[in-house]
């Protein structure tokens, strides 16, 4: 099992946001986590990635069998966890090329590998750039600076393609995308899928799942996964709306 979250309780400033989440993700799988706003979807993503300010009060997060809940975010990333941000951060002054080269070499160092030669690195950049239809001039620009919403999301998938994580968590990657950008982003994710990695897609709408077909759909509601099923669960949710879940849970 790649990711195993057991009875995870998480607080922010003393307020409990996750109230006992269980989630199992195997290699080769695509999972979708859906749910209304404010139910803890982004918190779950941030906690797995190791963002500060979240307190795990109970439960554990195992990645490849290792408990990662005390690891620094960079170590989790080096272990193979990637988070596609809902709001990618602009870093003026740092080119994407240098950013990715630094990140790749730190990850390689963690695994005892030599840094990638400049030529190989560039070749890889060109190759992965095509995957998300990024124009070549983009790579000389500062990370996300002045990018449109669509460009920022494409850039997230590009980074994912470069770093080749074992587990990618994509937090609302579809938000703010027009249909063309959505198709490109989804396409990228599908092409990166292998038998050895897994993707967790967090989304509010079913729309993205027309392009990225999940093996398992989970519904997160009020800090808990209240329902899991196949891709048809997403369709049912789309049809009946989140009110249906509320009634089911409360009633």
């Amino acid at each position: 099992m790649l990711l195993n979250i057991k009875d995870l309780h998480v607080e922010i400033n003393g307020k409990e946001i996750l109230k006992g989440v269980n989630l199992e993700v195997n290699k080769g799988e695509v999972h979708a986590i859906m749910g209304p706003n404010g139910t803890g979807k982004s918190t779950l993503a941030a906690v797995v990635a190791g963002k500060d300010g979240y307190e795990v009060t109970q439960g554990e997060i195992l990645f490849n069998g290792k408990d990662i809940s005390e690891m620094a975010p960079e170590v989790r990333a080096q272990e193979g966890i990637f988070l596609g941000f809902q709001y990618p951060v602009e870093i003026p002054g740092v080119s994407i090329t240098n950013f990715m080269r630094t990140a790749m070499n730190e990850i390689r160092k963690y695994h005892g590998q030599e840094p990638l030669a400049a030529g190989e690195f560039l070749k890889k950049m060109n190759e992965k750039q095509k995957l998300v239809e990024i124009h070549s001039k983009l790579k000389n620009r500062s990370v996300n600076e002045g990018f449109s919403g669509g460009e920022k999301k494409k850039n997230e998938i590009f980074q994912m393609a470069m770093l080749e994580p074992q587990l990618a968590i994509l937090d609302e990657t579809d938000s703010g995308l027009d249909i063309d950008a959505l198709r490109i982003v989804a396409n990228g994710v599908n092409k990166l899928k292998t038998d050895d990695n897994a993707t967790v897609v967090i989304t509010h709408y079913q729309r993205l799942l027309d392009y990225i077909v999940p093996d398992v759909v989970h519904i997160l509601f009020d800090g808990k996964i209240v329902m899991s099923g196949g891709k048809e669960l997403a369709m049912e949710l789309e049809e009946k709306g989140y009110e249906w879940i509320k009634q089911k849970v409360n009633g």
Partner: peptide, 21 residues
């Protein structure tokens, strides 16, 4: 956090931000 999430250690992440600034 964004920089560290890409696998870059905290010291280098800080350095990168200061340098960018």
């Amino acid at each position: 956090f964004y920089i560290r999430q890409r696998g870059i250690g905290i010291d280098n992440a800080r350095l990168l931000l200061m340098y960018a600034y």
